[in-house]
């Protein structure tokens, strides 16, 4: 019984962490048809926010404004200088953001150094669930991901901005004809997607080992989740994260960590090969 509870908690944690990490990538691809290869580097940048906060001797919550400023400013610059010119050019934008990811990684090595770092969890208690003690921080992140995901989903379906975004995705020319400033909306969408990536990095920082090269792993895992779930929708993201996260924690619990990675990789390849549309097909 306890093993089952622990497994469920671990699987839920894996799924929530993966969904959080992949959200920005899914947003940017779904709204702008840009595969942001620098997604992982925005996660990395966000993960350094609590490192900086700790170094400066600031309270843990100071990581939030640091993250928003650092990631937001970088994303805004990147949109203005690079991405803006490459909307509707999927392959060009992929190449450009790939180059950008290398630049950001090397930049981070210069600024933060190459060594691995860890940050303390801002919520270092254990919550008792039956006979099991589970890290409170993880439970808080799970709750935040659930609430945030549901909120975002409702906002996209119900709000005026959500409607304008849907209109832009559907028919950009007509969106302009009804007075939507698509250039500004696209920029907002890109910066928001990068901020999501940064906030994911910040929230997951206490559970990761932080280094300039950590983005690659974040990108690949996010990409797997999106491939399995179906690119470009929140429903697909939730589904993909559940399958990938669930499979990885299942195989890891039953066999070894390596078996978990191998299973996830095989599944992603199978989907790319046989079901490139993923489980949740867009209308």
């Amino acid at each position: 019984m306890d093993t089952l509870v622990l497994f469920t908690l671990n699987a839920t944690w894996q799924i929530a962490a993966l969904a959080l990490m992949a959200l920005g990538l899914a947003l940017v691809f779904g709204l702008l048809r840009i595969m942001n290869m620098a997604h992982g580097e925005f996660v990395m940048l966000g993960a350094y926010a609590p490192v900086l906060a700790a170094q400066l001797g600031l309270p843990a919550l100071a990581a939030v404004p640091i993250c928003l400023m650092m990631v937001g400013l970088t994303a805004w610059l990147v949109e203005r200088l690079v991405v803006r010119h490459l909307y509707a050019r999927m392959f060009d934008s992929l190449l450009a953001t790939w180059a950008l990811s290398i630049l950001m990684r090397k930049g981070a090595e210069l600024v933060f150094g190459r060594q691995f770092r860890n940050v303390a969890s801002p919520l270092d208690g254990v919550t008792q669930i039956g006979a099991i003690g589970y890290p409170s921080y993880r439970l808080a992140v799970i709750a935040l991901v659930l609430a945030g995901g549901l909120g975002l989903w409702l906002w996209y379906r119900r709000s005026a901005t959500g409607l304008r975004l849907k209109a832009m995705v559907d028919n950009p020319a007509l969106a302009q004809a009804v007075g939507i400033n698509t250039a500004r909306l696209s920029a907002m969408a890109f910066v928001s997607g990068c901020l999501m990536a940064g906030l994911a990095g910040m929230l997951l920082a206490p559970t990761l080992s932080i280094s300039p090269g950590m983005g690659l792993d974040a990108l690949i895992r996010s990409f797997f989740a999106l491939i399995v779930g179906g690119l470009g929708s929140l429903e697909g993201l939730a589904l993909g994260a559940s399958v990938i996260g669930g499979l990885q924690s299942g195989l890891s619990a039953a066999f070894t960590q390596t078996a978990g990675y191998l299973g996830v990789l095989s599944l992603a390849i199978l989907f790319l090969w046989r079901y490139p549309d993923g489980l949740y097909r867009r209308r």
Partner: peptide, 24 residues
């Protein structure tokens, strides 16, 4: 003015094709 700016300035249009948002 870009297309969106002209629409806001008062030039309303109905294109020949793609005149609706299909998925909405």
């Amino acid at each position: 003015l870009a297309a969106w700016g002209r629409a806001r300035a008062g030039v309303v249009s109905m294109p020949q094709t793609g005149m609706v948002f299909d998925t909405l």
